Amino acid sequence: MTKGMWKLDALSGLLCIATGIFVGLSLDGATEFGGWLSQWQTLVAGALAVGAAAVTVLQMERTDIRQQTRHIELVRLGLRADRLTMLRLRDVWLDRLVAQADAIIPSLATIDQATKTTNDYSPIELNKAMGAFGYSFWRFKEILEDPLYEAAKPLFDGPATTAARFSDQSIQAIRELNGPLSAFLNFNQGPAFGYYADAAETVEKYWGLARGVPAAVQRLAAEIRRIAALYE
C-alpha cells in the first residue's frame, strides 16, 4: 500500500462505523444518548455527509495520483525507447550511409568530368565509374529501407525532416540517371557523339542532385547527430 494511503482507508472505515451507529441509535430513542442523537441528528447527519464527501474527494485524488504516476512511467518508457532508437541510428546506421556516400565521390568526379569534356577522360575509368554509380543506388536503397531509419523518422524535427527529404531526392536521382546518363555519354565516343535530346534533358534535370549526394548525406548526418545529442 502506498505510504499514507492506509490513513485514508482507516478514515473511510471509521465513517462507515459512525454512520452505522448513528442510524441504529436514531431509530431507538430509549437511551439518553439516543434521545440526544434524535435531537441533533440533522447536524450529525450533515457532519457525516461532509466527512463522506471529503473521503470521496480524497479517494478520487488518490486515483488521479495513481493515474498520473502511471502516465509518467509510460512517458519515461517511451522516451527510453526513443533514446535508444536515435542513439542506434547515429552510432550504427549513420556510419553505413556516410560510408556509402563517401565511396561514390571518385565516381561522381569522373562522371562529372566526362559530362563537361569530349575526349579528355578514360573510357575505361568512365565505365568503372558508371558501374559504381549505378550500383550505389541499390546500396543506398538497402540502407534507407532499414526499419531503424523508418522508426526514427517520427522523431525528426523540421530541419532534420527537410534534410532527410533532400537526401532521399538526391539518391533517387541516381536511379533516374542510370540509363539516360549512359546514353548521353555513350561510353566509347564521348558526349559529342552520344547525345540524345531526351537523355540530355534528363541529365540536365537530375545530375545536379546526384552530384550533390555526398553533401546531402553529410547534411542529414549533421541533423541526426544534433537530435541524438538531445537524448544523451
Rank of each mutant, 00 (worst) to 15 (best):
L148M: 08
L185Q: 03
A151K: 07
Q189H: 13
I171H: 09
S170T: 11
P159L: 03
S167K: 03
S170Q: 12
F187R: 14
E145C: 08
L177A: 09
A152M: 10
A183Q: 13
D157A: 13
S170P: 02
E150R: 15
Q169F: 00
P154E: 06
A173S: 14
A151H: 01
I174E: 02
N186V: 06
Q189E: 13
L148C: 07
P180E: 05
D168K: 14
R165S: 09
P159D: 13
L177R: 14
Y149H: 12
A160T: 10
L181P: 01
N186E: 13
S182I: 07
I174S: 04
S170C: 13
L181S: 00
I171E: 08
R175F: 15
S167Y: 00
F187P: 07
N188A: 10
L144V: 06
L155F: 08
L155V: 10
Y149K: 09
L177E: 14
N188C: 00
A163I: 09
A173H: 02
L185E: 02
F156L: 08
R175W: 13
I143D: 09
P147C: 08
T161N: 02
P159V: 01
F156I: 02
A152Q: 07
P159K: 09
D168V: 08
L181Y: 01
P159T: 01
T161L: 05
P154L: 10
R165Y: 02
S182F: 11
I171T: 04
L185N: 01
K153S: 11
R175V: 01
F166Y: 04
P147L: 05
L155S: 07
A183I: 11
P159R: 07
A151L: 07
D146I: 06
D146S: 09
L181M: 10
P159N: 11
Y149S: 04
G158H: 06
F166K: 13
R165I: 04
I174M: 04
F184G: 06
G179A: 10
A163T: 04
L177S: 14
A183L: 15
L148D: 07
G190T: 00
A151W: 00
A164N: 12
L144W: 08
Q169S: 06
F156T: 00
N188R: 14
L185K: 06
G190D: 10
D146G: 06
Q172P: 06
A152F: 12
L177T: 13
F187C: 00
I143M: 06
A151G: 02
A183P: 00
I143T: 08
S167V: 01
A152D: 01
L148Y: 11
F187K: 13
A183F: 09
L148A: 11
S167A: 15
P159E: 04
A163P: 11
L185V: 11
N186K: 12
A183T: 10
T162W: 01
A173M: 04
E150A: 15
Q189Y: 12
D146A: 06
A151I: 04
P147R: 02
A152E: 05
S167F: 09
A160F: 08
Q189K: 12
D157H: 12
